[in-house]
Amino acid sequence: MIFETDKKYNQYYGELIFHVAIFISISLGLLSSNSIMDFVLLTCMIIYLFKGSKIHWYFPLLIFLWGIYSDLVIGYPIGYSSVLFLFFLLLNQASNYFGIFHMNNVRFFLFLIGLLLVLIFEQLIIHLNFSTNILFFLQILKILVILVLYFPINFFMKNKININE
């Protein structure tokens, strides 16, 4: 009984820290006037690294709402950030479903492939909708910065926000 209470407490505590981290990451996008750090991608990484093997049904809905908030903060079309956040949540759940959640290197490459897919998708959408191309080099630079932060943030989340224990 005591262990069940501790488990639930840890779970709620982990989720709270996770949502606070997302909130701070999205809000930092308002300050960001440099072209290298993309806080939307940082938020995607936090969502991807979240160790949620037993998440509740409302979790994707919350991520969707965080996406709406992110679009309101940075002035993007409604739905843009939600698609990105939910895509990385899907990758997170898919890695859990196929049992590769604890294989760090495999997950890292899966994350890299996800980022590249997002980049290609964005290039296509902007090219088709606005007949222009975004600077490819700059997008690669943003991805590299996020990849550099991958393992430190993974370490932090493993130790502070693990709700499996």
Binding site: F64, I78, S82, V83, Q93, I125
Partner: peptide, 23 residues
């Protein structure tokens, strides 16, 4: 787990509809 994945996919579709229809 599958239910969560399906629900996530549905929300992705809804968000994509928001973008496509320029809501």
């Amino acid at each position: 787990q599958l239910r969560i994945i399906i629900f996530t996919l549905i929300l992705i579709l809804v968000s994509s509809l928001f973008i496509v229809t320029k809501i």
